[in-house]
């Protein structure tokens, strides 16, 4: 590891931020057109963030600030590990790639913990309720998702993302979305949950619990949380691309797949209502979990893969 590796990592995190913020902006435009509006300009999200960062805000004590820093730090750290294609990744040493799948799940959790801590530290009950819902949602989508990943890792014998990518790109192997169709569907539903897209948007629920965890934020703290949100969306969508869509051989392929996945999730989100929180849990523990287990049994014990 040299300083160059770390600079590449920071570069990837920055790239992820710019990419997702732009694609998020384009998506706002697309949704606008769907609803017969013009929609904002594609760079509107950048303007929002920089405006927030420049404003003077209020703080509810040291944990309120510390939590935001820890959250953004955790997410930036996670993004630094993310490979873009099978060659573009920050931490690689003599052919060994340090991008183990579990880093993304658990280092992301540090960020989430920081944010939850900060939100609860604001002393607003809406924020605590939002955090409660966010954690409950996490309990719901994470288990089916990890079972699918268990299947993938067990089948490919790789737990590094680039390893999984290469496995899918090898001749004779299909993308896991095709090779394990049930798992792929589960993966996409879980991605919707991770992104907080609409049937599972319960923890933000602006009309119901006043934006949940975000209720007390403004100014630079809110701006930093926006950055955090953009980067975490980048991480989650990239995970889906790498795990199920065969990753990418070059950066353009990555961009196309990324755009397709995020736009699809966004479109589905916009024609759905919102679940109640207990409905989210029962939903995920019914069909997606059953499908994930079926897929796992089929692949691991019978060895049937398309």
């Amino acid at each position: 590891m040299t300083i160059v590796n770390f600079l590449i990592g920071i570069g990837i995190a920055l790239f992820g931020f710019v990419l997702q913020t732009s694609i998020g902006g384009i998506n706002r435009k697309i949704v606008g057109r769907m609803q017969k509006r013009h929609g904002p300009r594609w760079y509107q999200e950048f303007l929002d963030i920089f405006k927030l960062l420049s404003k003077r805000a209020v703080s509810h004590g040291w944990i309120f600030d510390f939590g935001v820093i820890m959250a953004l730090g955790g997410i930036v750290g996670t993004a630094m590990f993310m490979p873009l294609t099978k060659d573009i990744l920050a931490f690689t040493n003599n052919g060994v790639n340090y991008d183990n799948f579990f880093i993304f799940v658990y280092l992301l959790a540090v960020g989430m913990l920081g944010m939850a801590m900060s939100a609860s530290g604001s002393g607003n009950p809406w924020a605590s309720i939002g955090v409660m819902r966010a954690l409950t949602t996490m309990l719901a989508y994470e288990v089916p998702f990890l079972i699918v990943v268990l299947t993938i890792i067990n089948y490919s014998g790789q737990s590094s993302l680039t390893g999984i990518m290469e496995f899918q790109q090898m001749a004779g192997n299909n993308w896991f979305l095709i090779a394990m169709p049930l798992g792929g569907i589960v993966g996409f539903i879980c991605l919707m949950g991770m992104l907080g897209k609409k049937p599972f948007e319960t923890y933000i629920a602006p009309a119901e619990i006043a934006s949940g965890p975000m209720v007390e934020y403004g100014g630079k703290q809110l701006g930093m949380l926006f950055i955090l949100h953009e980067i975490s969306v980048f991480i989650e969508v990239s995970l889906f691309v790498h795990l199920f869509l065969g990753g990418a051989a070059n950066i353009f392929e990555f961009l196309i797949k990324y755009f397709a996945v995020y736009t699809l999730a966004n479109l589905i989100s916009n024609v759905n209502g919102r679940f109640k929180i207990d409905q989210v849990v029962t939903f995920f523990y019914k069909w997606p979990l059953l499908m994930a287990v079926t897929q796992a049994v089929i692949v691991i014990y019978f060895g049937w893969v398309i």
Binding site: S54, R56, I69, F81
Partner: peptide, 21 residues
């Protein structure tokens, strides 16, 4: 890497306007 991430976040936080308690 986590420490670097936190350092970056801290720098962003500290260079921006101070919050009102």
């Amino acid at each position: 890497v986590f420490a670097i991430g936190v350092a970056i976040a801290f720098v962003i936080f500290i260079v921006l306007k101070k919050s009102r308690k």
